[in-house]
């Protein structure tokens, strides 16, 4: 029993050190792939960016895609963009997913998986709301239908800054 408690206690010391709101978003650049041209965070300087990390095998990601697409269309603001970085092993998996869940926003495949490591994500999906100054203002983990309205309010606020 003592060892069991010790074992459970072990978990407490293992706090994770992810990025937090207020920090500048790390710079990254993705090389071109058959699915997308080269891409850097700098390309979206001066815009509010919803930077999403997703995979074809993640159920909430599938749920989030049509909702994010709708949110982007509803806002209809050229200063807002959704950038969704895919972390699938195989590019075909991402392509099949996009055929099933077509979207108008930017999607890119990170073959080397450097960006999810850079952003220290702890689960799928994780999204970073980046303001016009390139600062992380909100981190969103998971995705549920109910999340959209709060997310929209946050984005509108950042757009007004």
């Amino acid at each position: 029993m003592k060892t069991l408690l010790l074992l459970l206690g072990l978990g407490i010391s293992q706090l994770s050190f992810a990025l937090s709101a207020g920090q500048p978003a790390p710079h990254f650049s993705l090389s071109a792939s058959p699915a997308n041209p080269a891409l850097q965070l700098k390309d979206f300087q001066g815009k509010v960016v919803y930077l999403d990390f997703w995979a074809s095998w993640c159920p909430p990601c599938a749920k989030s895609f049509p909702l994010l697409n709708q949110l982007r269309a509803d806002l209809g603001n050229p200063d807002f963009e959704v950038v969704a970085i895919n972390v699938d092993e195989k590019i075909e998996d991402m392509q099949a997913f996009l055929r099933q869940h077509p979207v108008d926003f930017v999607t890119a495949w990170d073959k080397a998986k450097q960006t999810p490591a850079l952003f220290e994500i702890l689960g799928m999906p994780t999204a970073f709301l980046v303001d016009k100054q390139g600062k992380i203002r909100h981190i969103h983990s998971g995705f549920r239908r109910q999340d959209v309205s709060a997310l929209r309010a946050k984005i509108e606020q950042l757009l007004q800054e």
Partner: peptide
């Protein structure tokens, strides 16, 4: 594999074990 995308919605019901396999928070 990709074709199983939505299928994993069916199989990753909350009680499926191990929860470790589900990266989704």
């Amino acid at each position: 594999m990709s074709k199983e995308t939505s299928l994993s919605c069916l199989t990753s019901a909350a009680l499926a074990l191990p929860a470790l396999a589900q990266a989704a928070p």
